[in-house]
């Protein structure tokens, strides 16, 4: 029983450890200085897909990402870990898309890649933390959704069983395929690169990247078609231009503010007994405690 699985992933700036070199003098974040990484929960999603590939012979794992040319980095990263193929959905027209416009474009790309049994993505991307693209894509594909998956337990007779992680516990659900699943960060971490696959795919390039490559490269790609990462443009998936980019995005950013630290006049105390004693007395006298 081979499955056809599409994994959705995004390349994101690493907002988790905003180090000193990423801070500008005015204390704001210099986004350009943040390393671009494979969105962490999308790696958890990829791992779930790769486990299904091991379990069910003939399964094909296809990575789909929407982003600029350099997002091909995460496609290669997925190929090194066991994905079979990757597509880069890229077009200037997509710039400025909010989650609704993004899910519209992604859903059209998925339809283009049909048939599929499963679409798996991370719960949310760390640059926006919205968790909206998964459910919105499912709605546009008119298929069911199961969010916050911690483990795909198995598939039998076209029915998938999934363990979900909720705030205060777990839930096990079943659903017929096709289905969209979003994976929670508590799911097993993704395997590391496989050295054979790394050797196999390290020269893979997108069509755009190939345009800047040397003759040798172009010949190499001709001999080994699996090294070409396909690109999908807005025209390839027949988008209605009004429904992507800024015009297709109902949400508008009115204002962006840097978080500024409010400043209070604080009383500075030492660790000496006298200071602590006075503090506790003051708190009790002011009825803040006691």
């Amino acid at each position: 029983m081979g499955l056809r699985i599409i994994v959705l992933a995004k390349q994101v700036p690493d907002t988790r450890n905003v180090g000193k070199d990423a801070m500008k003098e005015d204390g704001t974040v210099n986004r350009g200085a943040l390393p671009a990484i494979f969105n962490p929960e999308d790696l958890n999603a990829l791992e779930q897909a790769l486990r299904l590939k091991e379990k069910y012979a003939g399964t094909e794992v296809i990575l789909l990402t929407m982003g600029p040319t350099r997002a091909s980095e995460i496609i290669r990263e997925a190929l090194y870990r066991g994905a079979d193929k990757g597509y880069l959905l890229t077009d200037r027209k997509f710039a400025g898309s909010d989650t609704l416009a993004t899910s519209y474009a992604i859903s059209l790309a998925i339809k283009k890649l049909a048939p599929y049994d499963l679409v798996i993505s991370g719960r949310q991307a760390i640059d926006g933390d919205t968790a909206q693209v998964g459910p919105q894509t499912a709605e546009k594909l008119e298929i069911g959704q199961v969010t916050y998956a911690e483990e795909i337990l198995g598939i039998e007779n076209n029915k998938i069983t999934i363990k979900r992680r909720l705030e205060r516990g777990i839930e096990v659900v079943s659903s017929p395929l096709p289905l969209l699943v979003t994976v929670h960060g508590s799911a097993p971490a993704c395997r590391t690169r496989n050295s054979k696959l790394f050797m196999k795919y390290k020269h893979s390039k997108t069509v755009t990247e190939l345009q800047e490559a040397t003759e040798d490269y172009i010949k190499l790609q001709k001999d080994r078609p699996y090294l070409t990462i396909e690109e999908l443009s807005a025209a390839d998936i027949n988008v209605d231009s009004e429904m992507v980019g800024l015009s297709g995005s109902p949400t508008k950013v009115k204002k962006i503010e840097n978080v500024v630290l409010a400043h209070k006049e604080s009383k500075i105390l030492s660790d000496q007994d006298k200071d602590i004693e006075n503090l506790m007395k003051e708190l009790i006298d002011n009825h803040i405690i006691g």
């Binding site: 988790r16 974040v29 109902p250 508008k252 962006i256």
Partner: peptide, 20 residues
């Protein structure tokens, strides 16, 4: 005005939906 932290909490964004 829908106000939320973004970018790992380093910025605060104000979002509006004018038309829908």
């Amino acid at each position: 005005y829908q106000i939320r932290p973004a970018f790992g909490g380093s910025i605060i964004a104000t979002i509006v939906n004018p038309e829908t």
